[in-house]
Computed example of a mutant assay.
Amino acid sequence: MMVEAGGLVEQRKDTMTMRHVNSKVRYVNKTIKKLRCKKRKRPVVPRVPRLLQELFVSCREVFKGPGNVPPPFDVDKLRSILDRMKPEDVGLSKNLHFFKAAGAVTGTPRVTYTTIYQCDEFSLCIFFLPANAVIPLHNHPGMTVFSKLLLGKMHIKSYDWVDQVHSEDPVPPSQLRLARLKADSVFTAPCDTSVLYPTTGGNIHQFTAITPCAVLDVLGPPYSKEDDRDCSYYRDIPCSAFPNGETTLSEEDEGDRFGWLEEIQVPENSQMDRIEYLGPQVAENSL
């Protein structure tokens, strides 16, 4: 999933649109009781939820920049934190109007996103998908991504390339490439965190919201056009549609499902609206 320029997301600078979008997703507001005491009190500094701060600190320790894939121990550490996280840890609630929305939506539902924190090594962001909204099939070049479905019900389809291609020998955009299907299932929150790696784990995936959803994503490193981590989009075609496309598969591949992926231009429904993050802030000076 995108966080900045170069693919899946685009920041909307139209203030009217931003105001309209922001009205769809609101955070939990705590009621402040009036104090009867006449003495002036010191301002109360909101506490960062423990798990959100733990996630932030662990990300700073785990992600070492481009070209580095976290070892299994660190992956398990981050996954354990995310598995325990709840919507309230980022200021959300299932009682918000957005997650109770019902009825037909006019036109193509737009996805919105907000960034909790971002640096060169990693980013923390939340994606909000109305019912029937789609984040098209896209890749995550050189990235390790943790996805935690916080709220809602979502269909996820993901692929990995059967044969990896080196950067010095790129594949023409029009050429079909064989990919192994890694996931094609419906997930309902709360559920376990999914992890994808630069070449495994379902690096190319698509999200389709069945109900309004919120997904917390940890990307390490984030997308960066300047660092050749731009996003590509694909359409998938069942292998049965190409009976003459013979491919030699090993015995280990027997029983697996495959698809042909073709790179396409940036789809219109890949554009997203960015909103301000209004949830709990992480404490950057905690280290």
Rank of each mutant, 00 (worst) to 15 (best):
V186W: 04
T114Y: 01
G259D: 08
E246M: 12
V90S: 04
N29W: 11
Y113A: 06
A209E: 04
R47V: 14
K86Y: 07
L278S: 11
F127Q: 03
L249N: 09
S80E: 12
P212S: 02
W260G: 04
Y223H: 14
H205W: 02
E121W: 08
Q265V: 07
T200D: 07
K30D: 13
L287D: 11
K41E: 11
P280H: 06
E54K: 13
T115Q: 06
R274A: 12
I135E: 01
L219S: 01
E226S: 10
M2H: 12
V90D: 05
L129A: 07
A5P: 09
Q164S: 14
K39P: 04
V25L: 09
D74S: 14
C213V: 06
E4H: 14
P198H: 00
E251V: 07
D120P: 02
D253K: 09
I210M: 06
L52Y: 01
A104F: 14
K225R: 11
F128L: 02
S240N: 09
Q271G: 09
L176R: 13
D230F: 10
A241M: 14
G65L: 05
S232Q: 13
M18E: 10
I32V: 15
R235L: 11
N95G: 06
V57T: 15
L278Y: 03
P172W: 05
Q53A: 05
V62G: 00
R79K: 15
G103R: 05
H166F: 06
S58C: 06
G142E: 05
